[in-house]
Design a protein around this nucleic acid. Sequence first.
DNA 1: CTAATCCCGACCAGAAAGGTCGGATATAGC
DNA 2: GCTATATCCGACCTTTCTGGTCGGGATTAG
Lengths: 187, 187
Amino acid sequence: MQHARPSRPEVTRIITLSTRPAFHGSGAVSFSTKGEYGVRLMVQLGRHFGTGPASLAEIAAEEDLPRAYLEQLAMGLRDAGLVVSTRGAHGGYELGRPPSDIRMSEVIRALEGPIAPMICASDDPEHATLCDRASNCTVNILWVRVRDAITGALEGMTLADLVPLRLPPMNLETPTNKTLQGAVTRS
Amino acid sequence: MQHARPSRPEVTRIITLSTRPAFHGSGAVSFSTKGEYGVRLMVQLGRHFGTGPASLAEIAAEEDLPRAYLEQLAMGLRDAGLVVSTRGAHGGYELGRPPSDIRMSEVIRALEGPIAPMICASDDPEHATLCDRASNCTVNILWVRVRDAITGALEGMTLADLVPLRLPPMNLETPTNKTLQGAVTRS
DNA sequence: CTAATCCCGACCAGAAAGGTCGGATATAGC
DNA sequence: GCTATATCCGACCTTTCTGGTCGGGATTAG
């Protein structure tokens, strides 16, 4: 995906940004870059919270992401009411609410759409279509359980849980990580 | 895409699968048809458990799925040791272990690969690549939590939970379907 | 021998992912 | 008013993956 700029100056293309992996979660149940970049965008906005709008150019530089692509994501987030935009010079985006009021489930839904591991198990009733096999389908409960597990995990975290910058450690492993319990098994 | 199955015998299917939807979970974190079809395949094998090998042609007919495609899935399941194949006439596939011994996490992994909502949060250590941003990445814990929620849900179900055929109901509209949430959230 | 069946690599069309581009519009500061 | 900085937004593009199909080979029961 190393965007061949139209010019394409012959062979001089070395490795360049080789290593942006093609698909970011390559196995089952993966998020797309929309989800990844969008969350990182939101985290940056969280760090800037209270200091007026931050421009996408700024954030793109901080996170090393393509600015033009962030625009798409930002618009989705804006339409969902999660961020507020200010146009013109010194404009940019800022969070619509404090980070602790923004559930990660909202963020993901704004970026990627309803959480639906299978079409018969969408959390958006508008969007869920009953499968024709409903009458003899015993499999559905599996997808519903997976969906509920995912939404539970996303619902249980807010942007505030992700915003803290990892400091140059005076003390590592401070328990300031509020509510996080068990579950994580940091690998 | 909606593979005009050469012989779709019945016209009696009114609305139904007019269009096999292009992607089966269209929002965030969706499984592919590999996961869907593969699980249905396994369920059928579970129903045939103990009665010798069942051919793919048979199962393809029962589940109305393309036989040639099922072959691919079956080979993955075989390589993972979940099913055993018998070649030649009257051959087919059968489960390698009783349904209650087969965790759905194994099935999904065999079909779709490691569970990795994001590349830095794969459950296959072989496959997880630390992101370059690791040092200042606070986002990782989100993906890890989601991953653990998913694996937890899949680990908690076995094939035996899906095999039972839904009987012709004595009581209609039992609250079985929609009301089984709760369940998860165990964080 | 034959029919059924798994095995398996090659191939393919279409859709989605992951962006880029260029212009329109809005605003702050000179 | 002019300019630099921004968002807004539709059009477009390339690569990758999905969701299969096809055809032949190897195996085995009858």
